[in-house]
Design a protein around this nucleic acid. Structure first.
Length: 588
DNA sequence: GCCGTTTTCGGCCCGACTGTTTTCAGTCG
């Protein structure tokens, strides 16, 4: 079930679309879009707020606050209902077709009564668009192609898939003579969990050789647009990639601009306007004289606007501008801060590599400590037994300290922690009795089945796991699989409160198809005072490197080193892992 | 419809590319 805030955000996004389709004031459209975003990202539940409380939310004034109150009182908003009565849902759906926006959708509806994608396709085949102003043969062709793309997914891809493509393109274009700099920007640089288009930026005196090399890449299936400054292609896998080539002198302003987000850019440009400046991808200019002030580095651009450099992962207009203006940006966690991985598997259960290989690979990464957490017996396909687990523990103790240790103190080798990934059953119980659990250095506990429990039962289930004195980390807390399975329905705020109360950390699972918790939930959990563990959940040696995506996600949740237990020195970590347990000497 | 170191009115980010235009509107990011 969606949070109340998400429901309202969706409603106002719809209202904004309907206003633009009916030819309403473009500034009103933007106001509702901004309000939708602010509400979606607001920490408090909007269903509990009155008109006055709602107006505390940025971009929410009296009119919008009253609509929110109306929505929770009556279940609908009359202004939205009025536009819905005029514009069938299918017309709004038309704007999902690439190259078809609200104006064209409106003309199609008004002139031809078209109110679905199917009707539009039929109308084109019957040549009924021929007499419409603004619709030529090329437009018809583009719409048909757009419908095809829409129907054959045209979906966003996972972060790692986009990163692979971007890394390759950047490497190729960097080799072109005259290409002075090249990098990826956009949502990829911001580490968003999914990527719609890959944005690549290059600096060169002459753009044509770089553009040429770009369009000649072997996996280009289609050239969408091709100009002197911008070229867009689609790859054979259907991913679209934009390349912008700018003069080397504009690098900083261009990188700032093409990194986005759009909302962040609007805010920075507004700051510029208020200072009688103009910010574009070519630089920061004096608005009156047109004279260029700065453009070479992002730092210069931000500084001239009165801001410190803002890390890309924060550039979502979620308060980073205000925090920057007040000197209150967080010192974000970085990948180099991670001292160890606390959730990993071996071939004792469903991992691919033996213990020794995983440990050796972890040591290569320079970790000071590393936890092995294979599944317990309750995931019975894993065939775990007490004996097998205890035998693994003996081997872990033998290997402890004998690998790596670059980041270990005093030149000592990497410390190994023996743990388990427990299964949280439908009642919130885990695999072993407390006597057995006491032998582990740490326990991750995760939901692996019964995803469809109703909200109250699911919440109670996870809260009970938090209350277990031997559960240190809740693994992949919502169990979502991006694009495939939604997160469980649970009262996350109640779970966050339980984590804070019991000293249980929440995992930020770094696997690119999970990224669980997600950024917005991290922001909320952080307000409860929860600690986090950024883990790879590696089932193979190569997966250890996925940690970068978890760190990016943690950054998007504004986390610092102090918030993340696996950046801590080993002694502080071990103290945290003791949790509220009574007794002593059970581990170490 | 919101907002304010331009404060209760009059603004509201900026530019590239495409297609249909004969000077520009629509879409996208």
């Amino acid at each position: 079930m969606a949070r109340s805030n998400d429901e309202v955000a969706a409603l106002f996004h719809e209202y904004a679309d309907l206003i633009s389709i009916t030819g309403g004031d473009a500034f009103r459209t933007r106001t509702y879009e901004k309000a939708a975003r602010s509400i979606g990202g607001y920490h408090a539940d909007v269903s509990t707020l009155d008109v006055k409380g709602l107006q505390e939310i940025p971009n929410v004034g009296k009119s919008i606050a009253e609509k929110v109150v109306e929505y929770f009182r009556s279940g609908k908003v009359s202004a939205v209902e009025e536009l819905r009565a005029k514009i069938p849902a299918g017309v709004r759906r038309l704007t999902a077709i690439p190259t078809l926006g609200p104006r064209k959708a409106s003309v199609l509806h008004e002139e031809l009564g078209i109110s679905s994608v199917e009707e539009l396709a039929d109308a084109i085949h019957e040549e009924r668009l021929r007499d419409l102003r603004g619709f030529g043969p090329k437009t018809e062709e583009n719409i048909l192609h757009g419908i095809e793309l829409l129907q054959s997914s045209g979906e966003r891809v996972l972060l790692d898939a986009a990163m692979d493509v971007a890394d390759d393109i950047v490497a190729e274009l960097s080799r072109v003579t005259g290409c002075r700099r090249c990098t990826y920007a956009g949502s990829l640089r911001r580490y968003r969990e999914t990527i719609g288009d890959v944005d690549v930026l290059a600096a060169a005196g002459k753009s044509e050789p770089v553009m040429q090399a770009f369009t000649e890449l072997p996996y280009v299936s289609e050239i969408i647009a091709h100009g002197g400054k911008k070229t867009s292609i689609r790859t054979t896998k259907g991913l679209s990639v934009d390349l912008r080539v700018v003069p080397p002198d504009s690098w900083g302003a261009a990188l700032q601009y093409f990194t986005g987000s759009k909302a962040h850019n609007i805010r920075t440009r507004e700051l510029a306007v208020h200072q009688k400046l103009k910010l574009s991808e070519y630089g920061l200019f004096d608005a009156e004289s047109g004279e260029k002030i700065v453009s070479q580095t992002e730092e210069e651009v931000y500084a001239r606007l009165g801001l410190p450099w803002i890390p890309p992962t924060l550039r979502e207009d979620r308060g980073e501008i205000e925090a920057g203006l007040h000197g209150e940006l967080p010192g974000l966690i970085e990948e180099g801060d991670i001292k160890g991985d606390l959730h990993t598997h071996t071939d004792l259960t469903d991992g691919l590599a033996p213990l020794e290989e995983m440990v050796a690979a972890a040591a290569e990464r320079g970790y000071a400590y590393y936890a092995i957490t294979d599944h317990g017996p309750n995931l019975y396909m894993q065939r775990m037994t007490d004996e097998r687990m205890l035998a693994q523990r003996d081997r872990v103790r033998e290997l402890d300290g004998s690998f790596g240790g670059k980041r270990g103190k005093g030149g000592k080798g990497m410390r190994l922690l023996h743990g388990a990934e427990l299964n949280i059953d439908p009642d919130g119980d885990v695999d072993w009795p407390e006597e057995f659990l006491a032998g582990f250095d740490l326990c991750v506990a995760s939901v692996h089945s019964h995803f469809n429990q109703e909200r109250e039962a699911m919440t109670r289930r996870i809260v009970r796991a938090c209350e277990n004195p031997y559960v240190n980390i809740i693994g992949h807390p919502t169990t979502r699989i991006i694009g495939k399975r939604p997160g469980v329905d649970a009262d996350l705020d109640a779970i966050f409160a339980a984590c804070a109360r019991t000293g249980t950390a929440l995992e930020i699972n770094a696997h690119p198809d999970r990224l669980d918790l997600r950024d917005e939930d991290i922001l909320r959990a952080r307000r409860h005072g929860v600690k986090f563990a950024v883990d790879s959940d590696a089932h193979a040696v190569l997966h250890l490197a996925n940690l970068r995506y978890g760190v990016g996600t943690a950054q998007r949740g504004w986390l610092t080193k102090d918030d993340v237990i696996n950046t801590w020195p080993e002694t502080r970590l071990r103290r945290f892992l003791r949790k509220g347990r009574t007794g002593r000497g059970a581990h170490g």
